[in-house]
Design a protein around this nucleic acid. Structure first.
Lengths: 138, 138
DNA sequence: TTGACATCGTTGCGCCAGCAACGGTATTTT
DNA sequence: AAAATACCGTTGCTGGCGCAACGATGTCAA
């Protein structure tokens, strides 16, 4: 019997992720013209407060060059501020501006609504799905 | 309470998919120097037999330009053959060569082993995960 | 202290995905 | 039958990703 792509987990995972990502990206693209990296950086900053590029890189799973450029764009758009770290001059500290916090509040509501929509589609499979995803990127 | 990225499904899904994809891509990259689109086209052809670019495009969720270029590279590498369709001249029919079938046989074994590894990591959450993924790209 | 080494963020570069446009073919309409 | 429309696959183009190199700063060891 030959290999079956349709039952292959990496493939199904990639397709589902792409699909869901596109659906959601359309929402925040319409709301604020953000790209995926920009959205992730913003979302992380909204939760964490002031933090270095390096911290974000690790937490949101993006290359540091991607985070760096996303931060630059967000800064130009007035959503965040860059500043130096007190004791370690190598670090660049990122922090939301008032504008950024307001934007993130709006996006947070949109994201929560989308999450609710997804959970409704998933029904009882939602919980095990989240558990499984947790295990996969151990 | 502010929005929580870590519990956000599109994000978790994207991260898990990227992680798993990288792990597996390393395997077939080492075995045959294939890219993701090339692997998908090959895998689909292995199962379906001769089929048009358009069919693959729909089934493996890739843009037609991506499938077209992947097919060209696979043809140059000797893994597949392009030919015209009998009744509809617009169609390009793709078909594995003997070499392509042999390669796919090797890759199929590797993929099956990797799948088994993943299922072991997932344990009881494997089945609901697949169901959930199915629902998400309905 | 000074030299070797590690870490941080930015930038340059190669490459590929995604979109649009195109030539070529089929199908539908009138 | 001719014209309009739809579909298929390739190709050109742009933008962004990912890698590596770099300058700048920090740390560690002798």
């Amino acid at each position: 019997m030959s290999f079956d792509l349709d039952g292959f987990l990496p493939y199904r995972l990639a397709v589902a992720a792409a699909q869901v990502s596109r659906r959601f990206a359309a929402l925040y693209e319409a709301e604020a013209g953000l790209s995926i990296p920009e959205w992730r950086v913003l979302a992380h900053l909204g939760k964490s407060g002031p933090v270095s590029v390096r911290d974000i890189t690790q937490r949101v799973n993006l290359d540091k060059s991607v985070v760096s450029r996303a931060a630059t764009r967000l800064e130009q758009a007035g959503h965040l501020r860059k500043s130096g770290h007190d004791s370690d001059q190598r670090l660049v500290v990122l922090e939301l501006t008032e504008d950024g916090r307001a934007l993130m509040a709006r996006l947070g509501r949109i994201a929560d609504a989308f999450q609710a929509e997804l959970l409704a589609e998933l029904g009882e499979d939602a919980a095990p799905l989240l558990r499984a995803l947790e295990r996969l990127d151990r």
